[in-house]
């Protein structure tokens, strides 16, 4: 083991007081350093603490903001769900409304149809009633003309009856046009240049009514054959309509059918009744005829 040399005097060489002072100085220096370091550390810790507190505060703020946002998101999600629910309800209600509208429309249309049918029935009832109310030829003619004017809206018209022997159609009564100027129409006269006469002839020969479709722009507006049993015995000619009446409607066509089916028989019956001086047939005669 070697001894260290040249390091100054050994401790044992110095006086004790110096050693104590030296130790005290070292202790003080140590303590000073220790407390300074302690103070520095404390400062650092305080700073660090403050920084962390600030960070926590920031994080708490962020957290609070996130919480708020989350709550807001939830509220929005709830609202969106509610909106979806309401949209579904709205769709269901709209669908119900459409269904009800369709039902209402169906009822409205049906109501209009029934109104129209009622009107048709009323007109046909009145026409039938008036047509058969009298067996006097003049009254029958007057009633038919009135029917055509008041119910159909005819301005000018004539009723032609068949002359079987001469094979021609003769006007027997008219309204809105002078009977005297109305032509007699020969049947099977292909040379006729009168368009009204041609339509009249065709109507009687075929038994098919001519009733203008749509707006009436030419004459005659209508020509309706008078049926008696299985024969055509004449025709109603409607030359023109009242100013306010532009076209025929469904009920007019029904009235034409009724008149076409009944007027021939009514006129013939009126003639027989008048020529028979209004005498009733005997029950025996009728029974024999009905048998």
């Amino acid at each position: 083991m070697t001894e260290k040399k040249g390091r100054g005097p050994r401790r044992s060489d110095r006086p004790a007081a110096n050693v104590a002072a030296d130790l005290k100085q070292k202790r003080d220096a140590f303590l000073h350093t220790f407390f300074r370091r302690g103070a520095e550390l404390t400062d650092e810790l305080v700073h660090e603490n403050k920084r962390l507190r600030d960070e926590i505060a920031v994080l708490e703020e962020e957290n609070a903001a996130l919480k708020t946002q989350l709550a807001s998101d939830r509220a929005i999600r709830d609202l969106l769900e509610k909106i979806e629910g309401l949209e579904r309800e709205k769709s269901r209600l709209l669908s119900t409304v459409h269904e009800h509208e369709e039902i209402t429309n169906r009822f409205t249309n049906r109501f209009a149809e029934i109104e129209q049918e009622l009107e048709s029935f009323a007109n046909l009832y009145v026409a039938s009633f008036q047509l058969h109310m009298s067996l006097r030829a003049r009254a029958v003619a007057r009633n038919v003309k009135e029917l055509l004017v008041q119910l159909i809206g005819a301005r000018s018209l004539a009723i032609y009856f068949l002359d079987e022997q001469e094979k021609r159609l003769v006007p027997i009564t008219s309204e809105g046009v002078d009977l005297a100027i109305l032509p007699v129409v020969k049947l099977h006269d292909s040379a006729t240049s009168d368009p009204v006469g041609a339509i009249l002839e065709r109507t009687v020969l075929t038994g098919i009514a001519h009733v203008t479709e749509g707006e009436i722009t030419s004459r005659p507006a209508a020509c309706v054959p008078l049926q008696l049993e299985d024969r055509v015995v004449g025709a109603i000619v409607v030359y023109s309509l009242l100013e306010q009446k532009r076209r025929f409607v469904t009920v007019d066509r029904e009235l034409f059918k009724l008149l076409g089916a009944h007027l021939g028989a009514t006129l013939v019956a009126a003639h027989l009744w008048t020529t028979g001086d209004g005498r009733l047939p005997t029950p025996d005669a009728l029974r024999a005829m009905c048998a």
């Binding site: 007109n123 009135e146 029917l147």
Partner: peptide, 8 residues
């Protein structure tokens, strides 16, 4: 005046 129109 028309009985028919009255009826209608």
């Amino acid at each position: 005046d028309s009985p028919m129109m009255r009826q209608l």
